[in-house]
């Protein structure tokens, strides 16, 4: 590439396409070296999932959105499977749990065919009506059914519906999804660095960093200036709320965040904050950008 830095055109479409690949390459090297270091280099779980999402988006950009969205379905399945392995379910709840698993391909298909109207009500309306029924079908006694319904519905909402929002965001634009993921990652990295100084310091340092990132990525995300700043403020707030919620849930599920075993909180711990922030960011951007009405995504 020729020319000095001042003539560098940040908004050129090649850079917009290649940057996710560069990020994927960097994170792959990082993960590989962590694996080869045999524990000396510790990589937090959320970076593994950032890598997975980068891979999915690379598939979406360079192959097709369809395989990418089904890879997201697999991530959703893994997360939901881990959640159901952790909660205290009864034998009678099996049908309800099956129903929750079935909701994954159903919802992902709606994203794939861009049927927003049905996607947005599929889980809150249909699944949340059907699953309580399924839980009670084989339940003669009824005791504990409300708790089971709550547990299954929460898992479905969080690990399927919220992930569906991320998938939809990626459907509209890879960079919008990346804005969300990179911002959340940045927040988590800053708060990890400031653990000893408390949550507030982490939040206050993370806020300008995310606003800066949001403005920096503006030429690629196409979010106007004011909404870009707003998203930059919104995400750290959501991350703070998410961290608090997830910590409480982890404690209830008996997840030892310091020693995460496979199947005992690894996916939940890594993925939860991304998922917590996804729906609200998606709705804000959809509202501002009027995606689906004026702007079309991968499906166009």
């Amino acid at each position: 590439m020729q020319g000095n830095l001042s003539s560098f055109d940040w908004g050129r479409p090649e850079w917009r396409q290649i940057t996710p690949l560069i990020l994927l390459l960097v994170s792959s090297i990082l993960l590989l070296s962590a694996r080869l270091s045999r524990g000396r280099l510790h990589i937090p779980g959320y970076l593994r999932y950032l890598w997975a999402f980068l891979l999915v988006f690379a598939v979406a950009d360079f192959v097709s959105f369809t395989p990418a969205v089904w890879l997201l379905a697999f991530i959703s399945f893994r997360a939901l499977r881990e959640y159901f392995s952790l909660v205290d379910l009864r034998l009678e709840d099996r049908l309800g749990v099956m129903g929750a698993y079935v909701a994954i391909p159903f919802m992902i298909f709606l994203v794939q065919i861009d049927w927003y109207g049905f996607f947005i009500v599929s889980i809150p309306v249909y699944a949340f009506i059907v699953i309580p029924y399924l839980v009670t079908v084989f339940d003669e006694d009824g005791r504990g059914s409300l708790l089971s319904i709550g547990m299954i519905d929460f898992g479905l909402f969080f690990f399927v519906y919220c992930l569906g929002h991320l998938a939809y965001l990626a459907y509209y634009s890879t960079w919008l999804a990346l804005l969300l993921l990179l911002s959340v990652t940045l927040c988590k990295l800053v708060s990890t660095c400031c653990t000893s100084r408390g949550r507030l310091v982490g939040f206050l340092l993370g806020l300008p960093a995310v606003v800066g990132l949001s403005l920096l990525l503006q030429p690629w995300t196409d979010v106007p200036l004011v909404p870009a700043v707003f998203v930059g403020v919104l995400i750290p707030v959501l991350v703070q709320m998410g961290e608090r919620t997830i910590t409480a849930i982890e404690r209830d599920l008996g997840i030892d965040a310091g020693n995460l075993e496979p199947g005992r909180g690894r996916v939940l711990d890594a993925l939860a904050t991304y998922l917590f922030a996804a729906p609200i960011v998606f709705h804000y951007l959809r509202w501002i950008m009027k995606f689906g009405e004026s702007v079309t995504g991968h499906g166009a």
Binding site: R81, F84, R264
Partner: peptide
Amino acid sequence: LGSERALPREAALPLPVWQH
């Protein structure tokens, strides 16, 4: 641990949950 949830005696279909 886990198989009693995944495929207990009473069940016909296996349920995807972790096995330890």
